[in-house]
Simulated scan of single mutants.
Amino acid sequence: MIHVMIAEDERLGREELIYLLEQEEDVVICPSAENGEQLLELYEEYSPDVLFLDIHMPCLTGLEVASILRKETGERPVIVFTTAYDSYAVQAFDLKVTDYLLKPFDKERFTRTMERVREDLLKKNNKRPKIDKLVISLDKKIVVIDPNQIGYAVREGRQVNLHMLNNEMIETKMNLKELEEKLLNFSFYRPHRSYLVNLNAIEEITPWFNGAYNIVIGDKEKTKVPMSRNTARDFFDLLQGLS
């Protein structure tokens, strides 16, 4: 699925884009921003694949936001500028923007934009080298971790801490969604909105209360990770399929 975030200070513009994006079967729409500063905060939390950025926004313009993200995250995310003016093509090119969508939005033109978005996402994904490790950037160094040695991860405030099976804890600057995406090729499951567990590190599952459960991790402390009642059924279906 393609996770998309909109930054648009005009309500009608946001609603029009949301309507068009809802017609795309492979798109998940993240919460929208009304200005550049709010967009940067939401981006840190949700890490969308694609941004639809209005060029003229209060606080920070779309151009300023794109410049900040390019310096911090390189070629990700895919960016589409939206504007009522057609005089920003050079700036868009310099910021490696995928497309430039003029208001009012046209369905046919929007469809071509989404085709370009998918092509760019495919190119960026194919550029990635394959590695069976988790690479994390810390304050002054980069750490390479074997995901199989992670017991569980927990969101604490605005960061995620990795709790290793040897009881070491590693503080990261990632959010839980970012970590979950990095671990898609490994056996991890999200039993609770604040936790991600290594399925291979589970020792047992015990009832708690009101249909909820505790997942016991096979670390030295036998840590109990909560599993909400809403996710329990899917979790047990998953385990049934693995057995």
Rank of each mutant, 00 (worst) to 15 (best):
S67A: 15
K127D: 14
Q91Y: 12
D26W: 11
T73I: 04
E75D: 12
T113N: 00
F188D: 10
T113H: 07
S194N: 13
R76T: 02
F110C: 02
R128P: 05
R229L: 12
A153R: 05
V28A: 09
E10W: 04
K177R: 01
F81R: 06
I2N: 01
D106K: 01
D9R: 09
E34M: 08
V225N: 05
R158A: 15
Y213H: 07
L21K: 03
E15S: 02
V28N: 09
K107M: 06
N210H: 09
Y152S: 09
I145C: 06
K133W: 15
D86N: 15
D49A: 03
N198C: 14
G74M: 15
D9G: 09
D86C: 13
V80G: 08
E178G: 01
L134I: 09
T113D: 02
Y85F: 13
L95E: 04
Y213D: 03
N230T: 14
Q91M: 10
L102S: 13
Q91I: 11
I68A: 10
K182Y: 14
K177P: 05
E171K: 08
V28Q: 10
M227E: 06
V197D: 03
E171Y: 07
L17S: 00
K103G: 12
T223H: 12
A153M: 11
E181W: 11
E168T: 05
L176T: 04
D106Q: 10
D237L: 14
T231N: 10
Y85R: 01
W208P: 01
